[in-house]
Simulated assay, not measured.
Amino acid sequence: MPDLPILPGTTVVVRDVRSIYNGYKGFVQRISGSRAAVLFEGGNWDKLVTMPLTTLEQI
């Protein structure tokens, strides 16, 4: 079965060993070109980070 496209609202995990966000789970907020804005929430903080779609894996 082919991978489904990553769309806004998709839950993703970061798969990039060079990123400090490697292994973090978040929600895609918007997509622009080959990059996605991903919202990470944790305890008492929220962070919106833009990263390449190639480093994201849908879960």
Rank of each mutant, 00 (worst) to 15 (best):
I31A: 03
L39W: 00
T11Q: 14
W45S: 04
G42L: 01
T11V: 15
Y24Q: 15
D16S: 11
Y24T: 13
K25T: 14
T10S: 15
S32E: 15
E57M: 14
S34C: 00
V28L: 05
V49N: 05
G23V: 11
T10D: 11
L7R: 11
T50W: 10
M1Y: 10
R35N: 07
D16P: 02
V13E: 09
N44R: 15
I59W: 13
Q58Y: 03
R15M: 10
E41V: 07
L56A: 05
I20F: 14
R35T: 07
V17Q: 10
D46G: 07
N22S: 04
L56T: 01
Q58S: 13
D16R: 01
L56Y: 05
T55K: 07
V13M: 07
S34M: 07
I59L: 15
R15G: 04
L48R: 13
L4E: 15
R30Q: 05
A36K: 04
T50L: 09
F27Y: 13
Y21R: 04
W45K: 03
P52I: 02
L53A: 06
S19R: 09
V13K: 08
R35F: 10
V49F: 09
L4F: 14
R30E: 05
K25D: 07
I31S: 02
L39C: 01
D3H: 11
G42A: 07
L56H: 00
P52R: 07
K25G: 03
R15H: 15
G26E: 03
G43N: 15
F27G: 06
L39R: 07
L48D: 04
F40I: 01
Q29A: 13
V12W: 05
V49R: 06
L7H: 12
P8G: 05
G33P: 02
I20L: 14
I31H: 01
T55L: 03
D16E: 08
L39Q: 08
M1T: 10
F27D: 14
V12N: 06
R15C: 11
I20D: 12
K25Y: 09
T11N: 11
Q29G: 02
L48F: 02
R18Q: 08
I31M: 00
L39K: 10
V38I: 14
S32Y: 14
V17H: 10
G42E: 02
A36R: 04
I59Y: 12
K25C: 12
L56N: 06
N44P: 07
S34H: 09
F40C: 01
A36Q: 04
Q29N: 12
A36S: 06
D46A: 09
L56G: 03
R15N: 13
L53T: 00
R15W: 12
V13G: 04
Y24G: 02
Q58R: 14
S19M: 05
V28C: 08
R18A: 11
P52F: 05
E57I: 15
F40L: 01
